[in-house]
C-alpha cells in the first residue's frame, strides 16, 4: 500500500481538491492494498450529514452515507421499494453491508480478476495496456455492451434495483446536478477507465427515488453459492397486473454488463399483454438479441433467459412447476 495523507471532512465544502473519497472503505481499501488504486490523499466523508432517508415529493431522498444495512431495513423501503431492500440483502455479507454506503456501493469497481491483479494487462487500470481477461478466465464477464477494450461487469446489486426504480443520482461538485441512474454507469467503448458520469471534484450526495410503483417487487440473484458471492446474473423486477394484463413492467439486469442493463423494448413488449410462457420467451429473445459470450461465460445467455422467465412467472403468479 502506498503512503497517503488522510483528511476527515467536516462539511461538503471541506473536500480537498484531488483527494479520493473514502466512505465505508470496503472496496477502496482492498484496491489500495493491491495498489490497483493508489491515491496520494484520502478524504473520509463519513462525518458528513448525508446519512438520512427523507421524503422528497412523492419519492424518497437517500443520503449517500446511508449504510446498506440501514437502507435495506428502512420501513418505507421495505414497504414501497421492496426490490431495493431485496437487492441490498442479496449483496455481500452482513458485516460488509454494515459498513458499505449508498454512494460507495454505486461506485464499487468491477470484480474482474485481471483488474485486481497488477501482473495482468488491464485497460481499466492502465488505459492502452490491453485486456488480459480476453482469452483468460471469463466466467463472470459481460455478455452485453462489452467492447474490444474491456469485458468487465459492474458487479453490484443495489444499483440494479435502483435502475428498475428509475432512481436519480444527486451530485455535488463544480457543477451540481442530478443524473438519472440510466446515464450514471458507462459502457466501456474505448474508454473502459471511465466508469461513471462523475467528474473530478464530484461527490455523490444522495440517490433520489421517484414515487413508488405498487406491484410485485422481485430481485432474483443467481450465484455460485447461496450467499456472499457476486451475481452470475440478476434480475430486478417491478411488475403490476391489471385485470389479467401487465400494465407496468420495469426490468433491470445485473452481472451481465458494465452497467445495470435495462431494455425498454422488452418492457414495451410486455406491457398490455397477458402473461404467458410464449410472451416471456419472446421477451427473453428480445433482451438477448445483442448478447455475446466471451468463451467461459456463454452460459450466462441461457441463464439470464431462464432467470428472466422464472422471475416473470413468479411476479405474475404463474405456477412455478408448469
Amino acid at each position: 500500500m502506498r503512503e497517503f495523507s488522510f483528511h476527515r471532512a467536516a462539511s461538503v465544502a471541506d473536500l480537498p481538491a484531488g483527494a479520493t473519497i473514502i466512505a465505508g472503505g470496503t472496496n477502496l481499501l482492498d484496491l489500495m492494498k493491491h495498489e490497483v488504486m493508489a491515491p496520494e490523499s484520502l478524504v473520509d466523508i463519513t462525518r458528513l450529514d448525508l446519512d438520512r432517508v427523507e421524503a422528497e415529493g412523492d419519492g424518497l431522498r437517500i443520503g449517500a452515507l446511508v449504510r446498506n444495512s440501514d437502507l435495506a431495513a428502512h420501513p418505507t423501503i421495505r414497504r414501497d421499494y421492496a426490490v431495493l431492500s431485496r437487492a441490498l440483502l442479496a449483496g455481500a455479507s452482513g458485516q460488509l453491508r454494515n459498513m458499505a454506503t449508498t454512494g460507495g456501493n454505486l461506485m464499487q469497481r468491477t470484480r474482474c480478476p485481471y483488474f485486481y491483479d497488477r501482473r495482468m494487462a488491464c485497460n481499466k487500470r492502465d488505459p492502452g495496456a490491453g485486456c488480459a481477461a480476453m482469452g483468460g478466465v471469463t466466467r463472470n464477464h459481460a455478455i452485453l455492451g462489452a467492447s474490444d477494450h474491456c469485458i468487465a461487469t459492474y458487479p453490484g446489486d443495489m444499483a440494479v434495483a435502483l435502475r428498475a426504480l428509475d432512481a436519480v443520482v444527486e451530485i455535488d461538485g463544480p457543477s451540481p446536478r442530478r443524473v438519472p441512474l440510466a446515464d450514471f454507469h458507462q459502457l466501456p467503448g474505448d474508454t473502459p477507465h471511465i466508469e461513471t458520469a462523475l467528474q473530478p471534484g464530484d461527490l455523490i450526495t444522495a440517490v433520489v427515488l421517484p414515487a413508488p410503483v405498487a406491484g410485485q417487487h422481485r430481485y432474483r440473484k443467481v450465484r455460485d453459492r447461496a450467499s456472499y458471492a457476486f451475481a452470475l446474473v440478476s434480475v430486478a423486477a417491478v411488475i403490476r397486473l391489471d385485470g389479467g394484463t401487465i400494465n407496468h413492467a420495469a426490468l433491470a439486469f445485473g452481472g451481465v454488463a458494465a452497467k445495470p442493463w435495462r431494455d425498454p423494448d422488452i418492457e414495451r413488449l410486455l406491457t398490455g399483454r397477458e402473461p404467458s410462457d410464449a410472451l416471456f420467451a419472446e421477451a427473453a429473445d428480445l433482451l438477448l438479441r445483442p448478447a455475446r459470450g466471451q468463451g467461459e461465460n456463454k452460459f450466462k445467455i441461457p441463464l439470464l433467459r431462464r432467470s428472466l422467465i422464472a422471475t416473470l412467472r413468479d411476479a405474475t403468479g404463474m405456477e412455478a412447476t408448469a
Binding site: 480478476p113 478466465v137 453459492r225 447461496a226 450467499s227 458471492a229
Partner: peptide, 18 residues
C-alpha cells in the same frame, strides 16, 4: 497457469447459507 481465484470472495468455500 496462474491461480485466478485468489481470495475468499472468488474462491468459494461454502458459506453458512450453503
Amino acid at each position: 497457469g496462474h491461480a485466478v481465484s485468489r481470495d475468499l470472495a472468488e474462491y468459494h468455500i461454502p458459506c453458512h447459507a450453503d
